[in-house]
Write a protein that binds this DNA or RNA. Structure first.
Length: 795
RNA sequence: GCCCGGGUGGCGGAAUUGGUAGACGCAAGGGACUUAAAAUCCCUCGAAGUUUACUUCGUGCCGGUUCGAGUCCGGCCCUGGGCACCA
C-alpha cells in the first residue's frame, strides 16, 4: 500500500527509527554525564508518573548527547517490597514470579514508549548478585559500630498477629482485620545515621544544584537544635528521669513531667497498680506514625508519682501521655502549658494550671492560648529578669555543676530502623550463636540467599518458619546456630543502587575500581515524594561508602531534579486511589512522540501535572503538521531572510537556556515557534533551510522519532552537534522601548540603541498617545532602563 | 499538628527573576474549502465602558515597600506533598 504523503503514522515512524536511538553507554571517560532516573518498583503498571520521570530523563540524556557529552543512563528495578507479598496472598502467586512477570511487562512498556535507557547495565534488587553487596555493606557498617539492635515501637495487629506498615493502618485499625492497632515494642536492627547527622547537615551547603526546597526539607528533617538535658528525681522511688528540652528557659513553668506509657518508670508503677496498668494500655492504642500522634487527641493519666525539679526544687506530678514515644529522645518531656501549644491543650483537658514564666513584651491572654515566643523571664525565682537565652545558659551551667544535666545538641533525626518482619526482602546476614552471640555471616558465604520454597501462611514469620533457612552453623565456632529472620527495609536497597549500576556484574567489588569515576550521578531525576527519606538514606550510605574508600565523591547526586506529581482530580495518581491513567492507551492512539511532548509541555517538570485528556490532541496535530511539511517540502530557493534568522536565533537561545534550566515545557513551546516560522515563510530559502536544521536538533530530545525520521543530515541527530548561536544576529534583534508615564504603559518607540535619555523624552513628548499624558505637567523624575523601558514620573 | 510547595483567562501554562501580564498550546465562536462530514487553513478570544482607537479594572484575599509588584515584605484563605514500615 502506498503511504499517502499527508498521512502521519507515528508507529511506522517509531518502528523505522527506534534501532538508531539506543546509544551505547559510555563510562569512565572524560566529559561523562551520568543521568539517572529513580528506578521503578515493578508493579507491572507503567503509569503516568513513570512516563513523566523517564521522559524527563531520556530527554535530558538526548540533549546532553547533542551537547557532546558521554552520557550514561542506566535503568533497573527496585524489586523487593510489600506489594509482591500482598499479591502473593491475594493471587496465590510466588512474589518472585509475580515480580519477574511485572519486570518483563514493564520493560516492554519502556521500549514501547521510546525510552532508550542503557539496558546493558540493568539490575534488580531481588537478584542475589545484587543484594550480596548490600549484605557486605551491612557487615561493614556492623564492623564500624554503625549497626546495632534495640527495641522499637511498631504497629501491631492483635488479630492477624502481624506487624503493619503505616499505610496498612486506616483510622487506627488494621486494614485486613479491622482490629484497633496497638503499639508494640520489638527488638530490631538500626543503622546509626545519627553519627552522620552533622556530616549530612554540613554537606547541605554544597548541594548547590539541588532545589532549595529539598535542601531545606533535609535540614529540617535532621533538625539540629541546642537544648538541655535535665535530670528529675522521682520522689518515693529510687529513680531519676531524664528529659530533653530546647526551651529550658520555661523550666520553672513546668507543671508536670509526661512519660511514654512504656517508660521504665511507668512499667514499674504498673506492676504494683493494675488500674494504672490498664490506663497505660489504653494510651498505647493507636498507630505509631507521627502524623497520627500529632494530629490526634493528647491523652494522659497521672501515675501517682511526683518529680523534683532540680532548679526550682518544686515537686510536680508525673503523667504518662499517648503523644510521647519511648524510642524518641529519653521518652519523657516537661509539660509547660503557658508556652507550648500541645501542652496547653493537655493542661486544659486535665485542669492543670497555666503559669506564664516568659514575657515577650506584648499583652497575652493565657485563658485563650499559649505564648510560644521567647522573651524575658518572670515568676522564675533567681532567674527572673534574664532573657530566654541567658536563662538557658544559666540553667545548663547550674545543672552541670550539680551533675543533674547539661547543654546538649540534639537532632530530630533518629537512627534508621532497617528490620522488617517480612519475607520479600534482602536477608539480614547475621547469625545468633549460643556460644559467640551475634555473629555476622562470613564474607565468603555471601550472599545469604532468600529461600524460594516457602508457603504463605503467616507473612510475619515466613522465614522464621523455614527450618532450612533458619538453621545454620556459626561462622566462628561452627556449632549449630540460627539465622536472623528479619529482612532489610527496601530503602536500603535503593540507597546504593546508583553505585552498583556502574558495574552490575562485577563479582569482586561493589564497584569495579576501573569505573568508580562514573560517580557521582550528575543529574538525578525523581519524584518530590522522595525529597526526604530516600535521598537522606542514599546520602548517608554514600557518605559511608566514601569513608571506607569505595566512592571518590562525598555526595552521590550532584544535581537533583524533583519532578512534581501527576495528579488526577486533584490528588496523586495511584493504584490504591483507583485514578490511574495508563500511557499505553495513549501510545496506541497517538504514538510515543505525542505522548512525550504532551507530558513535557503540560507543566514545568518540578510542578505537579494535573492530567487532562485533551491537549495530547494538540501535540499530535503539531507532529502531523511537521510530518506534512517535511514529506512535501519544496526545493530550496536562493536568498536569505535576515529578520527570520535573528528571530530564530532569539528562540534558539531561549530553548538552550530552558534546557539548561530543565524548563522543558518552554523548550517544546520554542520548537513550536521555530516551526511556525518555517511553515509560515512564503519561500523556502537558504535561511529557512538553516532554521529547519536548528529545529530538528532542538526537537530531537523531545520527539526523537519524528525528528530522526525526517532528518537527512550526514550523521544521526544524536551525534549531530548542537547549533552554535549566531551572536551577531541575536544582537540585531531589537525591541521597541516601552514608555511609561507614572508607571503606566502609554506607548512604545522604535529607536536605535544610541538614543540618549533626553532624545527619548523628546520623542515621547512628540508622540500623540504619550503626549496627552504629559501635557500640562512637569517632569519630576525619569527612570530609564536602556534598551527596554523609560518611566517618566510627572506631578 | 509540624516541615516544604502551589494558587495567573473557559483550561494547561508563559513572563530570560522588580520593568509591555497572558508566550506556546487546548477548548470555544466565526469564516474558507467540501454535495456533506472529517481533516486542513484563516480570523476572534481576560473583564467592563456606545468598542480597529481609547479609558478603567485585572495574577487567591487584606495590607505594606517601590517611579514601577504575578515577582519583595507582613497577615489570612484554599490546595498538593512529606512526617521515619507504601515506594
Amino acid at each position: 500500500m502506498q503511504i499517502m504523503s499527508n498521512d502521519y503514522n507515528p508507529h511506522n515512524i517509531q518502528n523505522q527509527t527506534a534501532a538508531q536511538l539506543f546509544a551505547k553507554p559510555k563510562l569512565n571517560v572524560a566529559n561523562k554525564k551520568y543521568i539517572l532516573a529513580m528506578f521503578p518498583y515493578p508493579s507491572g503498571q507503567f503509569h503516568m508518573g513513570h512516563a513523566r520521570c523517564y521522559t524527563l530523563a531520556d530527554t535530558m540524556s538526548k540533549y546532553y548527547r547533542t551537547r557532546g557529552f558521554n552520557v550514561f543512563s542506566p535503568m533497573g528495578w527496585d524489586a523487593f517490597g510489600l506489594p509482591a507479598e500482598n499479591a502473593a496472598i491475594k493471587h496465590n502467586k510466588h512474589p518472585k514470579d509475580w515480580t519477574d512477570g511485572n519486570i518483563k511487562q514493564m520493560r516492554e512498556q519502556f521500549d514501547m514508549l521510546g525510552l532508550h535507557f542503557d539496558w546493558d547495565h540493568e539490575l534488580k534488587t531481588c537478584d542475589p548478585e545484587y543484594y550480596r553487596w548490600q549484605q557486605w555493606l551491612f557487615i561493614k557498617l556492623y564492623e564500624k559500630g554503625l549497626a546495632y539492635r534495640k527495641n522499637a515501637t511498631v504497629n501491631w495487629d492483635p488479630v492477624d498477629q502481624t506487624v503493619l506498615a503505616n499505610e496498612q493502618v486506616i483510622d487506627g485499625k488494621g486494614w485486613r482485620s479491622g482490629a484497633p492497632v496497638e503499639r508494640k515494642e520489638i527488638n530490631q536492627w538500626f543503622l546509626k545515621i545519627t553519627n552522620y547527622a552533622d556530616a549530612l547537615l554540613d554537606e547541605c551547603e554544597h548541594l548547590t544544584h539541588w532545589p532549595e526546597q529539598v535542601v531545606t526539607m533535609q535540614k529540617n528533617w535532621i533538625g539540629k537544635s541546642k537544648g538541655v538535658d535535665i535530670t528529675f528525681s522521682i520522689i518515693g522511688l529510687d529513680a531519676t528521669c531524664q528529659v530533653y528540652t530546647t526551651r529550658a528557659d520555661t523550666l520553672l513553668g513546668a507543671q508536670a513531667l509526661v512519660l511514654a506509657p512504656t517508660h521504665p518508670i511507668c512499667e514499674a508503677v504498673s506492676k504494683t497498680n493494675p488500674k494504672i496498668a490498664q490506663a497505660l494500655t489504653q494510651l498505647s492504642q493507636s498507630g505509631v506514625s507521627e502524623a497520627e500522634i500529632e494530629a490526634g487527641e493528647k491523652l494522659g493519666v497521672a501515675i501517682g508519682l511526683t518529680a523534683l525539679c532540680p532548679i526550682s526544687k518544686r515537686e510536680i506530678p508525673v503523667y504518662a501521655g499517648n503523644y510521647v514515644l519511648m524510642d524518641y529522645g529519653h521518652g519523657a518531656v516537661i509539660m509547660v502549658p503557658a508556652h507550648c501549644d500541645r501542652d496547653y491543650a493537655f493542661a486544659k483537658r486535665y485542669q492543670i494550671p497555666v503559669i506564664p514564666v516568659v514575657d515577650n513584651g506584648k499583652e497575652h491572654d493565657y485563658s485563650q492560648s499559649a505564648m510560644t515566643e521567647t522573651g524575658t523571664l518572670i515568676n522564675s525565682a533567681q532567674l527572673t529578669g534574664l532573657s530566654s537565652q541567658e536563662a538557658i545558659e544559666e540553667i545548663a551551667k547550674t545543672l552541670a555543676a550539680s551533675q543533674q544535666g547539661q547543654a546538649k545538641d540534639q537532632y530530630r533525626l533518629r537512627d534508621w530502623g532497617i528490620s522488617r518482619q517480612r519475607y520479600w526482602g534482602c536477608p539480614i546476614p547475621i547469625i545468633y550463636c549460643d556460644n559467640c552471640g551475634i555473629v555476622p555471616e562470613s564474607e565468603a558465604n555471601l550472599p545469604v540467599t532468600l529461600p524460594t520454597n516457602i508457603t504463605f501462611s503467616d507473612s510475619s514469620k515466613m522465614l522464621a518458619n523455614n527450618p532450612d533457612f533458619v538453621n545454620t552453623s556459626c561462622p566462628k565456632c561452627h556449632q549449630p546456630a540460627k539465622r536472623e529472620t528479619d529482612t532489610f527495609d527496601t530503602f536500603f536497597d535503593s540507597s546504593w543502587y546508583y553505585a552498583r549500576f556502574l558495574s552490575p556484574k562485577e563479582s569482586n567489588d561493589l564497584i569495579a575500581p576501573s569505573v568508580t569515576d562514573g560517580l557521582p550521578v550528575d543529574l538525578y531525576i525523581g519524584g518530590i515524594e522522595h525529597a526526604i527519606l530516600h535521598l537522606l538514606y542514599a546520602r548517608f550510605i554514600h557518605h559511608f561508602m566514601h569513608d571506607i574508600g569505595i566512592t571518590p565523591a562525598k555526595e552521590p547526586f550532584k544535581e537533583l531534579l524533583t519532578q512534581g506529581m501527576v495528579l488526577k482530580d486533584g490528588s496523586k495518581m495511584s493504584k490504591s486511589k483507583g485514578n490511574l491513567v495508563t500511557p499505553s492507551e495513549l501510545h496506541k492512539t497517538y504514538g510515543a512522540d505525542a505522548l512525550r511532548l504532551f507530558i513535557l509541555f503540560a507543566a514545568p517538570p518540578s510542578q505537579s501535572l494535573e492530567w487532562c485528556h485533551s491537549g495530547i490532541e494538540g501535540m499530535h496535530r503539531f507532529l502531523k503538521k511537521v510530518s506534512l511539511y517535511f514529506s512535501n517540502k519544496q526545493p530550496v530557493s536562493e536568498g536569505v531572510t535576515p529578520k527570520l534568522w535573528s528571530d530564530a536565533q532569539t528562540i534558539l537561545s531561549k530553548i538552550e537556556h530552558d534546557y539548561e534550566k530543565r524548563q522543558l515545557n518552554t523548550t517544546v513551546a520554542g520548537c513550536m515557534k521555530l516551526f511556525n516560522i518555517i511553515q509560515q515563510s512564503p519561500v523556502r530559502n537558504t535561511t529557512i533551510q538553516k532554521i529547519e536544521e536548528i529545529f530538528f536538533i532542538a526537537l530531537f530530545p523531545l520527539a526523537p522519532h519524528t525528528s530522526s525520521f525526517y532528518w537527512d543530515g550526514e550523521k544521526p541527530l544524536s551525534e549531530t552537534a548542537w547549533p552554535k548561536i549566531d551572536q551577531e544576529a541575536l544582537q540585531q534583534q531589537t525591541r521597541p522601548i516601552v514608555v511609561q508615564v507614572n508607571g503606566k504603559r502609554r506607548g512604545e518607540l522604535n529607536l536605535n540603541k544610541e538614543c540618549s535619555e533626553s532624545d527619548i523624552i523628546h520623542l515621547a513628548q512628540e508622540t500623540l498617545s504619550i503626549q496627552k499624558h504629559l501635557e500640562g505637567k512637569s517632569i519630576k523624575r525619569v527612570i530609564h532602563i536602556p534598551g527596554k523601558l523609560i518611566n517618566i514620573v510627572v506631578s
